[in-house]
Computed example of a mutant assay.
Amino acid sequence: MDALSLLLNRRSLPKMAAPGPQGEVLENILRAGLRAPDHGALTPWRFIVSEGEGLQKLADILVAAAKADQAEEAVIEKASKAPFRAPMVITVVAKVQPSEKIPTVEQHISAGCAAHAMQMAAVAQGFAGFWRTGSWAYHPVVREALDVQGDDMIVGFLYLGTADCREVKAPERELSQFVEYL
Rank of each mutant, 00 (worst) to 15 (best):
L34A: 09
L42G: 10
L30A: 12
R10L: 04
W45C: 05
P44I: 02
I29D: 10
A17D: 07
D38G: 03
R10P: 09
V49W: 07
E24D: 13
S12A: 09
A32H: 01
S5H: 11
D38T: 00
Q22H: 10
T43P: 03
L8N: 10
A18T: 00
L26I: 08
F47I: 14
L8W: 10
P21I: 01
Q22P: 05
E24S: 14
P19T: 01
L6E: 08
P14Y: 13
W45Q: 07
P37D: 04
E24L: 07
S5E: 11
E27I: 14
L7W: 08
P44W: 03
V25K: 06
F47T: 12
S12D: 12
G33P: 04
E24R: 13
A36F: 10
P44M: 07
R46Y: 09
L34E: 12
G40D: 05
R35W: 01
L42D: 12
R46Q: 13
G23K: 11
D38Y: 03
W45T: 08
S50P: 04
W45V: 09
Q22V: 14
E27A: 11
R31W: 03
A36N: 06
G20A: 01
N28W: 03
W45K: 04
K15G: 00
R10G: 04
G23V: 08
L4I: 15
F47N: 10
F47H: 04
A17C: 10
